[in-house]
Amino acid sequence: MKVMIRKTATGHSAYVAKKDLEELIVEMENPALWGGKVTLANGWQLELPAMAADTPLPITVEARKL
């Protein structure tokens, strides 16, 4: 699914347009965010693609819901 990742004042957030859902990312498998699992505030887990740590945000990526 397409997910937009952006930086907020409190960390990172994910927006899933198909579900009209925006949630804070509360847990990251990798400190650089990319190439691992993230957990959203509502409990969803997404697998993000591997990208460079300095990838500019906001960005829309293809993520997989676990």
Rank of each mutant, 00 (worst) to 15 (best):
A9K: 11
T10E: 13
E29C: 06
A63T: 08
M28F: 11
V16P: 02
L66I: 14
A9R: 10
L40K: 00
A41L: 06
K37E: 06
A14R: 02
L40R: 00
A50N: 12
P56F: 07
E29D: 10
K37P: 05
T10A: 12
L40T: 00
P56R: 09
V26C: 09
H12Y: 15
N30M: 10
V26S: 05
M28P: 00
K37D: 03
L57G: 02
A9Q: 11
S13H: 09
A9W: 07
D20W: 08
K37H: 09
L46K: 00
V38A: 00
M51A: 04
V16S: 06
E62W: 15
R64K: 13
L21D: 05
L40W: 02
M51G: 01
L24A: 14
K2W: 14
I5F: 02
W34D: 02
K2S: 12
M28E: 03
A32E: 14
A17V: 15
D54T: 09
T60Y: 11
N42E: 02
P49I: 05
M51Q: 06
D20K: 10
L66T: 10
T55N: 02
H12N: 05
V16L: 14
M51R: 04
R6Y: 11
M51H: 04
R6K: 14
W34T: 04
K65M: 15
I5E: 01
Q45L: 12
K2I: 15
L48A: 01
A63V: 13
E23N: 07
A9S: 12
Y15M: 09
V38E: 02
T10R: 13
G36K: 03
L46D: 01
L33I: 09
S13A: 12
M4E: 15
A41S: 10
L46H: 05
M4C: 12
G11N: 03
M28N: 08
T55V: 08
E29H: 04
L24D: 14
N42H: 02
D20L: 10
T39W: 11
N30E: 08
W34F: 10
K7P: 06
M1D: 05
N42C: 09
K37W: 15
D20N: 13
A41G: 09
D54P: 05
T55E: 01
W44V: 07
M51P: 01
T55L: 05
W44E: 05
G43I: 03
R64H: 10
V61P: 01
V16I: 15
I25M: 01
D54A: 07
K65C: 15
W44M: 09
